[in-house]
C-alpha cells in the first residue's frame, strides 16, 4: 500500500509537514499546560515524602535521646531526693537528741533550783519559827511571871503592855 502511494499517486508531502508541525506544537502545548506543572508537583511530592521520612527518623532519634536524658535525670533526681531525705533524717535525729538533751538539762536545772529554793524557804521558816518560839517563850515566861506580881505591878505591866501594843500598831 505504501509502495502504491509512492509509485501510483502523489505523496502528500504537505500532510507530512502538517503532521510533524502539529505534533511538535502539541508537544509544546502539553509541556506548557500540563507537563511542567505535573512533573514539578510530582517532584515536590517525592521531595516532601523523602523529607518527611528523614525528619521522622530525626525526630525518632531525638525522642530516644530525650527519653534517655530524662531517664538519666530521673535517676539523678531520685538519688538527690534520697540524699536529701537522709540528710533530713540525720538532721532530725540530731535535733531531736539536742532537744532531749536541752530538756533534760533544763529539767535538772529547774530541779536543782527548786531544791535550792525549798532549802532556802525551809531555812527561812526555821529561822522564823525560832524567832517566834523565842518571843512566845518570852511571852509565856512573862505571863507566868506576871501572875506572881501584885495588882499594881500587874496593872503597870498591863499598861505597859497595852502601851507596847499601841506602839506596835
Amino acid at each position: 500500500m505504501f509502495s502504491y502511494s509512492v509509485v501510483g499517486a502523489q505523496l502528500y508531502v504537505g500532510d507530512m509537514i502538517f503532521v510533524m508541525i502539529a505534533f511538535i506544537v502539541l508537544m509544546w502545548l502539553i509541556k506548557l499546560v500540563a507537563w511542567k506543572p505535573i512533573t514539578k508537583m510530582m517532584q515536590n511530592r517525592s521531595d516532601k515524602i523523602a523529607n518527611d521520612i528523614d525528619s521522622a527518623k530525626d525526630s525518632r532519634t531525638k525522642a530516644a535521646e530525650l527519653a534517655q536524658q530524662r531517664q538519666v535525670e530521673l535517676d539523678k533526681t531520685r538519688e538527690d531526693a534520697s540524699g536529701i531525705i537522709n540528710t533530713a533524717k540525720q538532721n532530725g535525729q540530731q535535733q531531736r537528741d539536742q532537744i532531749v538533751e536541752d530538756a533534760r538539762n533544763e529539767a535538772s536545772n529547774l530541779k536543782s533550783s527548786a531544791e535550792k529554793d525549798i532549802e532556802q524557804q525551809r531555812q527561812e521558816a526555821l529561822a522564823n519559827s525560832r524567832k517566834d518560839v523565842a518571843s512566845l517563850s518570852i511571852e509565856i515566861a512573862s505571863k507566868i511571871i506576871s501572875k506572881q506580881l501584885n495588882e499594881d505591878d500587874q496593872k503597870g505591866l498591863v499598861d505597859s503592855y497595852i502601851e507596847g501594843l499601841g506602839k506596835q500598831k
Binding site: L11, Y12, D15, F18, A22, L29
Partner: peptide, 19 residues
C-alpha cells in the same frame, strides 16, 4: 505542496482533543 483535507482535519481534531 499537496494537502489531504481529511488528514488535516483529523489530525487537528485529535490534537485538540488531546490538548
Amino acid at each position: 505542496l499537496t494537502f489531504n483535507l481529511g488528514n488535516i482535519i483529523s489530525v487537528t481534531i485529535a490534537c485538540v482533543i488531546v490538548l
